[in-house]
């Protein structure tokens, strides 16, 4: 469903070239959940941003259903949506939740009904009365639910999730991960998810790509990860550093 073929992204930061992503290839099948892991700065977010046309692609190609992505189009927004790490920054502070959720529909010339907004809130486990609240009146976990609800308004088939629970408490993280899993099952969604937490990736993803310094280091199945069956030094280092996250 998603094919990334020898993707390179290079930023020009005040005259200095930053090779954020170099020759990375991966494919995500329909309804699969794929994870990107690696230390901060390794290029994970840049890959998601490149899919959405938010990063300067300097080489390679990104295809969805075999066709090159066209991020500026309305069709793209109805196919792919992104959820960010920081639910504080990603919701407009002066818009009610009602407005946050109806905006994607309005932009696409679709009719917003009260029922549709209430259903969206119910689907992410929030009370319908939250329609009239502002983001600052919600907890971090509640805001992230709103961000997920917003991403789902146009009924996309693909969700790009960038550290969706890194800013949340363990208990709220668990609730949010359970919600994402349930939504993926009931709606047949495809996930491409970024996290620096191997346990979160292991819980959520079928296949994993380990990244370092903008490069793909090693692709792993979930089974290989659980068994510690990695072949590269870096993937092993990451695994060893996550010893306190092992089932055991």
């Amino acid at each position: 469903m998603i094919e990334i073929d020898t993707l390179s992204v290079t930023f020009n930061a005040a005259g200095r070239l930053v090779r954020a992503v170099e020759n990375v290839s991966l494919t995500v099948g329909a309804q699969e959940s794929f994870g990107l892991v690696g230390e901060s700065g390794s290029g994970k977010s840049t890959i998601l941003r490149a899919i959405c046309g938010l990063a300067p692609i300097s080489g390679g190609a990104i295809r969805i259903d075999g066709k090159p992505v066209a991020p500026q189009t309305r069709a793209f927004a109805r196919q792919v949506q992104m959820v960010f790490q920081d639910p504080y920054a990603s919701l407009h502070p002066r818009h009610t939740i009602d407005r946050v959720l109806s905006e994607p529909l309005t932009i696409h010339g679709l009719k917003t009904t009260e029922g549709r907004i209430e259903q969206a809130l119910t689907d992410v486990g929030l009370p319908t009365s939250f329609r009239f609240r502002f983001p600052h009146q919600l907890s971090g976990g509640q805001r992230q639910r709103v961000a997920i609800a917003r991403a789902l308004m146009l009924e996309p088939r693909i969700l790009l999730l960038d550290e969706p629970t890194s800013a949340l408490d363990a208990s709220v993280q668990a609730e949010t991960l359970n919600l994402l899993t349930r939504l993926r099952e009931t709606r047949g969604l495809t996930f491409l998810m970024v996290s620096h937490d191997l346990a979160v990736i292991d819980h959520m993803c079928d296949r994993i790509l380990v990244m370092q310094h903008g490069k793909a280091v090693e692709a792993l199945s979930r089974e290989a990860l659980a068994q510690g069956a990695m072949t590269t030094d870096y993937a092993r280092t990451l695994f060893t550093a996550s010893a306190d996250r092992l089932m055991g």
Binding site: A170, S171, Q173, A174, E175, L177, N178, T181, R182, L198, A199, V200, D202, H203, M204, L225, A226, Q227, F239, S242, R245, L246, M247, G248
Partner: peptide
């Protein structure tokens, strides 16, 4: 608090709610 943390190699069942 500890049980609601996911673990590498853990089950795919929903994480326990607190």
């Amino acid at each position: 608090l500890l049980n609601c943390l996911p673990r590498i190699g853990g089950p795919r069942t929903p994480l326990p709610a607190l």
